[in-house]
Design a protein around this nucleic acid. Structure first.
Lengths: 190, 190
DNA sequence: CCACCTCCATTACAGATGTAATGTAACAGT
DNA sequence: ACTGTTACATTACATCTGTAATGGAGGTGG
């Protein structure tokens, strides 16, 4: 008998395959047959579960964002002690420090160019960005940093830079503590 | 008589065409015929001046980086008054605020994913990053910021984030002065 | 038993892809 | 004038692309 799958699990497996291919491949989006081979299915399966290729890619993007968000909420209690530690958890969880997070980062990077013109992907970017800004801003407010939302905007940008540094130069190129030191140290108040 | 070109000018024109296509297109690398059409030549011309497509793309990347670097050195004297203004010039020049800089940013973004696996593109990224870090670090040192190279690393990452914010959310999403305010305001010295 | 549906494999196809191969003008050197 | 080289244009081709079309296997409700 053919393997039985709950359809969502199959879609998630395909999305994971896309992540692995984007991580290993040359950065360009893989073809349908390549995705099917990596996922251990045929292109017919892909056509059935996702209509078109763009639907598949958009689902893959959402899948990896969802996984990252799940990890963030799962570790959210670790930040109960100090806002500084909460920020460290968030930043570290977004860095490509293992295969799973490397795939997520590769996916995110690959879709930036796409989002520049395609409104669907752009909307997704905006939504994801807002979630991150809220998370960071909350911790900056707890840390009594003046203008916490501005601080969150800056850290979000630093995170993006750290993700590519880590992806292209290796894990030793980033130092979470050094970054938080500089962004959290108290300032003169006039 | 057929138009005469000094070969370098033709290559640069092709590289500009690639930039425009990456800016307007959906983020994926354009095909040879598309590039040829945009540049007003045929694929034979492309094959003659660049051997293969990868050579063409790498040249395009170098071309746009060179243009940006040229603009930076051309405006370098404007930063003579204050390091803060020098930093503002550098950051602004890297943001996609007109067609030329938008093309440069699109090119840079498109090649990040590629650099993750291809050593040639990765080397280019490292070199370009070092140049920027030196430029920024020099100004932070002039501003008597403690650990100027660490500050430069952070600002370089912020710049990368600002570039995508500006590209995806529009010019109003970035505020150079606000960023420099936060990164340059004096700190408590223990 | 029968229709019906989901799930999937296979095949087919029209179009795009990078590039090799070939031809051909224009000019440079001798 | 002959030769060689540069700078293209055109054609050809094998391969890859996304997807439409078709068919079939297995489970489900009547």
């Amino acid at each position: 008998m053919r393997e039985r799958w709950v359809p969502d699990a199959r879609r998630n497996a395909v999305a994971d395959a896309v992540g692995r291919l984007l991580m290993r491949g040359h950065g360009t989006f893989p073809g349908m047959r390549e995705i099917a081979a990596e996922a251990g299915v045929t292109t017919g399966t892909l056509q059935h579960h996702f209509g078109t290729k763009d639907d598949l890619l958009l689902f893959a993007l959402e899948h990896h964002c969802r996984r990252c968000a799940d990890r963030l909420t799962a570790r959210s209690e670790e930040g109960a002690r100090s806002p500084r530690q909460a920020l460290a958890v968030i930043v570290t969880e977004l860095l490509p420090l293992d295969e799973e997070r490397a795939a997520e980062t590769s996916v995110a990077k690959a879709f930036v160019s796409r989002a520049a013109t395609d409104p669907g992907f752009a909307a997704h970017y905006r939504a994801q960005r807002k979630i991150l800004l809220d998370l960071l801003g909350e911790q900056f407010a707890r840390a009594d940093v003046p203008d916490p939302s501005a601080a969150a905007t800056i850290l979000a940008r630093v995170i993006e830079g750290m993700r590519t540094d880590c992806l292209l130069l290796g894990p030793d190129a980033v130092d979470v503590d050094a970054v938080l030191d500089r962004l959290l140290r108290p300032r003169d108040t006039p």
